[in-house]
């Protein structure tokens, strides 16, 4: 466990997450920002953001860099990693990212669009029966075995290297190949089909940059493939808030920043009420 619980743990370091973090920090809350590298988000590829007041015309990359700079100057702790599990226990939340575990009193989900990403054929049916979302968690169970890594995110190659280093025979598929893959098996994984060819394997690691929040937090209410929130950005689970592209369209920086601010104020209010 990583020390004591922080007040607000923010999942995602894009505009909504940074905005929430700056506001929460300014309110005197202890904050931790955790998530995938924002420089690999769709925003980082935007050539120009035309409607962000005061900074209109900046590239997505420059805008993100400026925001992350603000976070750093404020002294907010940020950790890059893939969140693999969230659980509520004893009035707080525990969040695992790779091998580390963090504790927080409230969560702000700001993990971007893609919450509604469709699972691959066979993925949900065979999850835990040869399909895994976490190479560091389950890799050891496949030592000496043949596994496929479906690298749907940018970190897939790194994980493939890790699996190889612990003694797995690894077949790596990049995002272009992986997105049309099919996982085959009845009681357990027997093969993976990619590009019309079947490869016999014992396990399949499906690795995305972000695991959908609904998969991480069972019972989290969704609406049209996005996290359902009220006007204060509170999600259906007490102590959980959400902001930015993960709560719905339009996917705009200005909207995400405003929502991040609202979510942080709501989380602060929730903590005040709770600690009364």
């Amino acid at each position: 466990m990583d020390g004591s619980a922080c007040d607000i743990l923010i999942l995602g370091a894009g505009p909504a997450g940074v905005s929430a973090a700056l506001t929460a920090h300014a309110r005197g809350r202890s904050v931790l920002v955790l998530g995938a590298d924002p420089m690999r988000s769709p925003l980082a590829k935007a050539e120009r953001v035309g409607n962000y007041p005061g900074l209109a015309g900046m590239s997505g990359r420059d805008l993100l860099a400026a925001m992350l700079g603000d976070l750093e100057r404020a002294g907010v702790r940020r950790i890059t990693g893939r969140v693999t599990g969230v659980v509520s226990f004893g009035g707080s939340f525990m969040v695992s990212a790779e091998r580390d575990v963090y504790q927080a009193k409230t969560l702000i989900l700001a993990s971007g669009a893609g919450q509604g990403t469709k699972p691959l054929p066979g993925e949900m049916e065979l999850l835990g029966k040869g399909v895994s979302w976490c190479a560091t968690c389950d890799g050891m169970l496949y030592r000496g075995k043949r596994v496929a890594v479906l690298g749907l995110g940018g970190e897939g190659e790194k994980d493939a290297g890790f699996l190889e280093s612990i003694g797995c025979q690894v077949l790596f598929f990049d995002p272009t190949q992986a997105k049309n893959a099919q996982i085959i098996g009845t009681d357990r994984v027997t093969a993976v089909a990619v590009g019309g060819k079947e490869y016999p394997v014992d396990g399949v690691f499906v690795l995305r940059d972000t695991v959908a929040a609904s998969a991480l937090l069972p019972g989290l209410a969704m609406r049209d493939g996005h996290i359902a929130v009220d006007e204060n950005m509170a999600a259906s689970i007490p102590g959980v808030f959400a902001a930015g592209d993960c709560v719905g369209r339009p996917y705009q920086v200005a909207r995400a920043v405003g929502q991040g601010n609202t979510a942080a104020l709501a989380a602060d209010g929730y903590l005040k009420e709770r600690d009364k």
Binding site: F89, E98, R99, V101, T136, C137
Partner: peptide, 12 residues
């Protein structure tokens, strides 16, 4: 021991 989520499962 290598599995983060297991370390959260344990106290529960």
């Amino acid at each position: 021991a290598w599995c983060g989520p297991c370390r959260m499962q344990s106290p529960i």
